[in-house]
């Protein structure tokens, strides 16, 4: 295996800090760009994210045309915080209301595709504590300044906020290193060149995203990479170093559930591609154990691994965007 892709398709956000150049490229391509933020109880970070993006990439440099928040049913003040700075806020349940509603990040991203207008969609997690507009322009750069890259993923250092006010400088990415990278190395070694395949920040042309299915939960990042890779090849994928991203620390149990969904998504994709033959349907429940007093008690989480079809297969979408299926 060669590592040519790592050299040619890996970028650093500083390569794209000339925002005027990006605006020029955008105008040349005659395209619109949407920023979509999936949320669930993000009142502490969402407004900051919107303010910075709006100031730097809408008001000062007309790079982004709209900021859209797709929410899974927040019970805090996420909506008020987002609307205070002019973002369009949608409850995921209200988008495509004729279809059955599911809750999950993948569901929000998929519905974001329906509700946004842009030819490029940037997806950013809404819990980035050290948000900076490089998170958006770093992803846009390769899409605007090359002709072959259609999907860009972020990677970064991942210090973790531990406790109320302290930071730990290393850590994070445990599911990547313990689950997804070994799986890639075993079955798709080329994909190990993607430094952080599970990062929650990526941007892509609509005509790529609308043609792939979206798992409704955690598996969405894994499936996107596998589907884009198998459909269009590694060359259409790029990755950008965004330096540093501070995020919430997650418990090992929460990461275990995330790993469950990712492994399931991966195996399903392999089966779909005919690379493995599953003799039996996989189970839907992740079972974990808690020590209560002197007794271990099982706690199970049902995670069915549901997927949304490619958006181009949804009639309401093709009607709205006048796309031929």
């Amino acid at each position: 295996m060669t590592y040519n892709w790592l050299k040619s398709n890996t970028f650093h956000h500083s390569e794209f800090s000339d925002l005027g150049r990006l605006v020029e490229a955008k105008q040349k391509k005659k395209i619109k760009i949407s920023l979509c933020l999936p949320t669930l109880n993000e009142e502490r970070t969402i407004a900051k994210e919107i303010v910075i993006m709006k100031s730097e990439l809408m008001n000062r440099f007309p790079l982004i045309d709209e900021i859209v928040v797709v929410d899974s049913g927040s019970t805090d003040r996420t909506r008020e915080a987002a609307e205070a700075y002019g973002a369009r806020f949608y409850s995921a349940a209200d988008i495509l209301p004729d279809m059955e509603h599911f809750r999950g990040k993948g569901e929000n991203l998929w519905k974001g595709l329906y509700i946004t207008q842009g030819d490029i969609i940037i997806y950013l997690d809404a819990d980035i504590k050290n948000i900076h507009h490089r998170f958006a322009y770093g992803l846009l750069g390769p899409l605007l300044l090359t002709d072959h890259i259609k999907y860009v993923k972020a990677f970064y250092d991942r210090p973790i906020a531990v406790g109320k006010n302290k930071m730990r400088s290393t850590g994070g990415g445990r599911v990547t290193e313990l689950v997804i990278r070994p799986l890639f190395a075993l079955f798709f070694p080329e994909l190990t060149q993607i430094i952080q395949p599970l990062s929650g920040e990526y941007a892509s042309y609509r005509d790529i995203l609308e043609k792939i299915p979206f798992p409704i939960g955690y598996g969405v990042e894994t499936s996107m990479i596998l589907d884009i890779y198998t459909k269009w090849g590694l060359e259409v994928i790029g990755q950008t170093d965004l330096d540093r991203r501070v995020h919430r620390n997650q418990s090992t149990q929460a990461l275990g559930r995330m790993a469950f969904v990712i492994i399931k998504t991966f195996i399903n994709r392999k089966a779909k591609l005919g690379l493995i033959d599953l003799k039996k349907k996989m189970f839907d429940e992740m079972i974990q154990y808690n020590l209560v007093g002197n007794e271990y008690r099982p706690v199970s989480f049902k995670m069915e691994g549901l997927e949304r079809p490619p958006m181009v297969e949804v009639p309401a979408y093709t009607e709205k965007f006048a796309r031929e299926n």
Binding site: A47, V51, A81, K164, N165, K166, M167
Partner: peptide
């Protein structure tokens, strides 16, 4: 320096 400097913004 080691204190959390991440700001919270609301309306």
């Amino acid at each position: 320096k080691d204190v959390n400097h991440n700001f919270v913004v609301n309306g």
